[in-house]
Design a protein around this nucleic acid. Structure first.
Length: 219
DNA sequence: ATCCCGAGGG
DNA sequence: CCCTCTGGAT
């Protein structure tokens, strides 16, 4: 398919993409199980290079064993690493979770900061994690969540030519209205898990196939 | 062998 | 910029 040239054509194409996403996923939310912002922060830290399905397998037992943020602050990372072993990167993740609990108790009175700059000072929370927690925990559109799915699909749809997640996020912020940021991320993540998968995308059942340039890029 | 709701350190 | 950290599914 021909790539649009004018700014107006690009806008029209973006609106088509957003309309299809709304038809596919009108009311998607965060797929990581959680009952408060702290649990969402933990689940998001655990989700690095790991499917949300597997995170959801360990978090119920984890939150039963460590019910409060104080419980996480008091455990030794080597012990926590055993509990989260199946999510991978367990040593790094355990240090991040314990460090985050201690930092939040010491510097933020036990409350997850609702400001992106403050949240970014918490161990284990960079832009992706901070955007997830603020967006799905508090409804604050601090940015666009760019994980592996969002990065891959934004490239396939030619919504960015950038590679690094920070630059991809900058591009998406520039073209999306802010009230779309949170929903858009979740929609692309669901789309990336169900249809536009990394290795063998199901282009035959994709309603955006006509708008996609992936043939150029994946051929 | 590749990929999964990345982050920190050099 | 680069590298490392890791299990489990496909």
């Amino acid at each position: 398919m021909k790539r649009p040239r004018s700014k107006a054509d690009k806008q029209a194409r973006l609106q088509q993409i957003l309309g299809i996403l709304d038809d596919l996923y009108p009311n998607v939310t965060c797929a990581l199980n959680h009952s408060n912002a702290w649990e969402l922060l933990v689940a998001t830290i655990l989700s690095a290079q790991c499917t949300d399905e597997r995170v959801n397998k360990v978090t119920p037992g984890l939150f039963a064993k460590y019910p409060t943020i104080e419980d996480f602050a008091a455990v030794r990372p080597e012990v926590l690493a055993v509990d989260i072993h199946s999510t991978g990167f367990f040593n790094n993740k355990a240090k991040s979770v314990v460090g985050a609990a201690q930092k939040i108790l010491r510097d933020f009175g036990g409350e997850i900061p609702r400001d992106i700059e403050l949240l970014l000072t918490v161990p284990g929370a960079a832009r992706k994690t901070a955007n997830v927690v603020l967006g799905s925990g508090f409804g604050i559109a601090s940015g666009v969540v760019v994980d592996t799915h969002v990065g891959r699909i934004a490239a396939r749809l030619d919504l960015t030519r950038e590679e690094s997640p920070v630059k991809v996020e900058r591009d998406l912020i520039a073209i999306l209205p802010q009230e779309r940021w949170i929903l858009f991320s979740h929609q692309l993540i669901h789309f990336g898990r169900g249809i536009c998968v990394a290795r063998k995308p199901r282009c035959g059942e994709c309603p955006m196939a006509d708008l996609c340039y992936a043939e150029d890029k994946l051929a």
